[in-house]
């Protein structure tokens, strides 16, 4: 017979099985995966991924995402320029989709992850009724949507290479893809059990 407090129960990140937190390195009783305990669990890895993502996001906004070569004259546009162009054309819904996917989602995700990583180490905002698990859940849901612009560039570059008009992927597409990749890694390496730690 075991009596356990419900606060001592943790979920395995791989198989979702409920486990008893044995305050050291836990091994999941169902799938054998390692479940780290909060005090030993490092946030350094998440920080490293997140910082890489933020650094990659800078060139992603400075360099052109897409270059249009029309009858020999080249014109490139950055993410923001692309959004503004679409808006001026009257393509409001698409302009908003790209704005959300390429600017709003990545920046929100950076801020949410910074907030989560800071708040598990320093007791800020713990008394507020913010459910940090829900914050994490939303970073997980919205994260991949920032790939939209990279996919669009891939599609247009693959499709439009005619003699009169060509669309070429810009430097920013690589930087952007790298940024999204590292943001996803940062979120996945973040240990949600850290939240319960305090």
């Amino acid at each position: 017979m075991i009596v356990v407090d419900s606060d001592k129960l943790i979920a395995c990140p791989i198989c979702e099985a409920t486990n008893i937190d044995k305050s050291n390195r836990n091994i999941c009783r169902r799938c054998g995966s390692k479940i780290y305990h909060h005090r030993n669990s490092p946030t350094e890895k998440s920080w490293a991924y997140l910082i890489t993502a933020i650094i990659a996001y800078i060139p992603a906004n400075i360099y052109p995402m897409m270059v249009i070569n029309q009858f020999g004259s080249k014109s490139g546009s950055t993410i923001l320029e692309g959004v503004i162009e679409l808006w001026e054309h009257g393509d409001y819904p698409i302009s908003i989709v790209i704005l959300i996917a390429s600017i709003f989602v990545p920046i929100t995700k950076f801020l949410m992850l910074i907030y989560l990583l800071v708040s598990v180490k320093y007791p800020i905002g713990n008394d507020k009724k913010v459910n940090r698990f829900t914050v994490y859940y939303f970073t997980e849901i919205i994260g991949p949507w920032s790939m939209v612009d990279v996919f669009v560039v891939g599609i247009l570059a693959g499709l439009v290479h005619l003699s009169s008009v060509q669309i070429i992927a810009g430097t920013a597409s690589t930087a952007f893809a790298v940024s999204v990749f590292f943001t996803l890694l940062a979120a996945h390496s973040f240990d949600t059990k850290l939240i319960r730690g305090r």
Binding site: V3, V4, D5, L9, E16, A17, R29, Y137
Partner: peptide, 24 residues
Amino acid sequence: MKIELEDENDLDHYIICHKCHTVQ
């Protein structure tokens, strides 16, 4: 909340919500 278990396998009857992490 205290939970009584016969053994660890009884934990299968408890589920931690993926979204809000409460024990159900």
